[in-house]
Design a protein around this nucleic acid. Structure first.
Lengths: 108, 108
DNA sequence: CAGAATCCAATACGATACTG
DNA sequence: CAGTATCGTATTGGATTCTG
């Protein structure tokens, strides 16, 4: 049920669940959907606290490999990097929004 | 970021992510959304293979505590139990469907 | 600044066996 | 049938330190 087996299912539900069906991917996605702009590594680190740099780093790589997020390096000395949603990633805002709508409706 | 801290955030995105933002909850939900009927424990076990009975059992309890799923026992000798979505849980089909729609569109 | 490396703790999860 | 109990493994992820 890990990433390497992602192509073993044809079910679109399972595919999506395997890609974004975990806490950190969804929380990272939420930051991008709400801010609607490019975000730097350390900004994400703060916004998502208590995430560790190790977790953030590996999650971003994973999401880049799924082409949900893209990375741009705008300077190398010092290093300045920006992360943002791809078109594919931006369309996940529908998923996030329906989640938020649901919990708004049902939270007591 | 665990279930006990669920009330520490007002953000509806985070609330929803904490409740359903994990692999098994979403996969269990998928089974109910697609079948649209009451399902028995052992049926879920087969459908969700390779889930273990321990994991399924604890996930179902968790989802019942969130009032996403309800349980009915229709006989006690032998024990016959059925699980199904509550109204609150049924409304998560929108989330699942938008996930499936997304992955259908973007899978190569 | 943006990460990688290392180490360690916590949790999730599966296999198997057992029970009312 | 519908679980629970126990055990062991695997994965997740935090804290800290370090680097180009």
């Amino acid at each position: 049920m890990d990433a390497r087996n992602i192509n073993k299912t044809q079910c679109p539900y399972e595919k999506a669940i395997r890609i974004i069906g975990n806490k950190w991917s969804l929380l990272i996605l939420k930051e991008f959907c709400l801010s609607q702009k490019k975000i730097r590594f350390n900004e994400l680190l703060k916004a998502l606290k208590p995430i560790s740099s190790k977790t953030l780093s590996s999650k971003l790589k994973e999401m880049i490999s799924y082409e949900i997020i893209k990375k741009e390096i705008t300077s190398t000395m010092p290093v300045v990097a920006f992360y943002s949603l791809t078109e594919k990633g931006a369309e996940l805002s529908k998923v996030l929004d329906s989640m938020a709508e649901w919990s708004s409706k049902w939270s007591k």
